[in-house]
Amino acid sequence: MPFDVDGPVTTVPVAAVRPGRSPRRAGENPEHVRVLADAPDELPPIIVRRADMRVVDGMHRLRAAGLRGETRIAVRFFEGGEDEAFVLGVRANVTHGLPLSLADRKAAAERIVTSHAHWSDRMIAKTSGLSAATVARLRRAHPELTPDTRVGHDGKVRPVNGMERRRVARAIMLAEPTLSLREVAKRAGISPETARSVRRRLPQEPAPPPPREDLVRQLRADPTLRFSETGRTLLRLLEVRALPPEKWAAIAANMPAHWRDVMGRVAMECADTWRTFADQLAAGPRTQTG
C-alpha cells in the first residue's frame, strides 16, 4: 500500500502542530482523549504532514498531550500531498486506535473515489475498511470519474473494460427500473445505444440459482468432499455460513453497541476471504487431473 511512513521519530512543540482533515466528521472523542491522557504509558508518535504541520493521524494523542501539560510530542513526518495525507489518515484509523464509524468510512471512501479514481474498488475498500461492493456503489455516483484503467492493491494496472460498465448499467436498471436510458448511460459511462442493448437483455437473464441450502445439501452428499480432509473442512465452514437470514438478523440485533463497528470489520474481512476463495475457484482447472 502506498504512503507508508517509515521515517525517524522526532519531537516538535505541541503548539506547532495543527489539526488536519480528519475522517471523523464529528471530531475527536473526549472520552477517548481522557483515557489516553490518564494512561501511564508514553504516547506513540503521531503522523504530521511536514509541509503544513497538520496532523495526518493522531489527533486524540495530540489532545491528550495537551491535557497532560506536555510541551513537546513525538512525531513522524509525512512528505506527500493533502489527498495522500487523507488516505493515510483513513487507513491508519481503520487499522488501529478508536475505530471509525460506518458513516465515517463511507464518507472517506467517497472522497477517495474522487481523489483517487484510478484506484480499484478493492484497493479503496481495503483502505477505508469497507467491502468492494460498497465502494462500487459509491463510485456509480461519479461516472465522469471512470478512467480507462485502474490500479489494484497489488500495484498492477488493469483496464476497465466495457463489460464492467455494462454490469454497472444493468445494476442501475435493476435498482431503478424507471430511469431513462440517457440517465443510465450517463451514470454508467456508456452510450445510450449500449444502455438500450443492456436493457433488451434484462428479460433474457438466466433463472436464479437454487437456494443456498439446496446447494449445501448437494455438497454434503458428494463423497469426494465428505471423504477428504479439505472437503470436510469446507463443509464445516459451510455449516456456519448456512444459517438462515433471520438467525443472522437476530445475531446483529443482539450485538452489543460497543462491538458493532469492530464486528463489522471482522465480517468484511471474512467476506474478503470468501471472495478470494471464489476467485481461486474461478481461476482453477474445470476438470479432474489424474
Rank of each mutant, 00 (worst) to 15 (best):
V135F: 01
L179W: 03
S120Y: 02
T289C: 01
A207M: 09
A188H: 00
T178F: 07
A136I: 05
A125S: 04
E193S: 13
D41P: 07
L130E: 06
A132R: 01
V198Q: 05
R166V: 08
E239K: 13
N254E: 15
Q280W: 04
L243I: 03
T95S: 11
A283T: 11
V160H: 02
R166A: 10
R72F: 07
P23V: 12
D214P: 03
P208N: 11
P19H: 15
R111T: 03
T273E: 05
P143D: 05
R105I: 02
R139K: 07
W248R: 04
N161A: 12
G97D: 03
F78N: 01
R236I: 00
R196M: 09
K186L: 10
P2H: 13
V48Q: 05
I251Q: 04
L202A: 06
S180P: 05
R105D: 03
P19I: 12
T71N: 12
G231F: 04
V168S: 09
L130N: 03
D57I: 03
M163Q: 13
D83A: 14
V56G: 02
E110V: 06
V35I: 15
V9D: 05
M59D: 07
R236K: 12
K186Y: 02
E42L: 13
S128Q: 01
K126T: 09
P147A: 11
L98W: 11
V266Q: 09
A188C: 00
R139V: 08
H96Q: 13
D41N: 13
G264T: 13
R111I: 08
D222F: 13
A39G: 15
A278Q: 06
P99Y: 03
L98S: 03
V135K: 00
P147E: 09
G7T: 14
E164K: 08
V90N: 00
G20S: 07
V94H: 04
P40T: 07
D121Y: 13
V90L: 01
M268Y: 08
W119M: 06
A16I: 12
T71F: 12
D148L: 14
P206D: 02
V55Y: 09
G58V: 06
A109I: 02
E84V: 03
R18W: 09
A141L: 10
M123E: 00
L225P: 04
A51Y: 07
F78E: 04
L98E: 04
H153M: 10
K156Y: 05
A249N: 09
R220H: 13
D279C: 01
F78P: 00
L179S: 02
A195K: 01
T11Q: 13
T233F: 10
R232A: 12
A108E: 00
R63C: 10
L202Y: 01
L36G: 07
D83T: 12
L243A: 11
R21Y: 08
R241M: 10
A169L: 03
P19A: 15
E239H: 13
P223E: 04
A282F: 06
L100A: 03
M59G: 10
R158A: 14
A171L: 05
H153F: 11
A185P: 01
R241I: 06
T127P: 07
R49W: 09
R165A: 08
V216T: 05
V35T: 11
V87K: 08
R111M: 05
Q288N: 11
A257Q: 14
R260Q: 14
T233C: 06
L238N: 02
D41Y: 11
Q280H: 13
L88V: 02
H142S: 08
A26K: 12
R24S: 02
D148G: 15
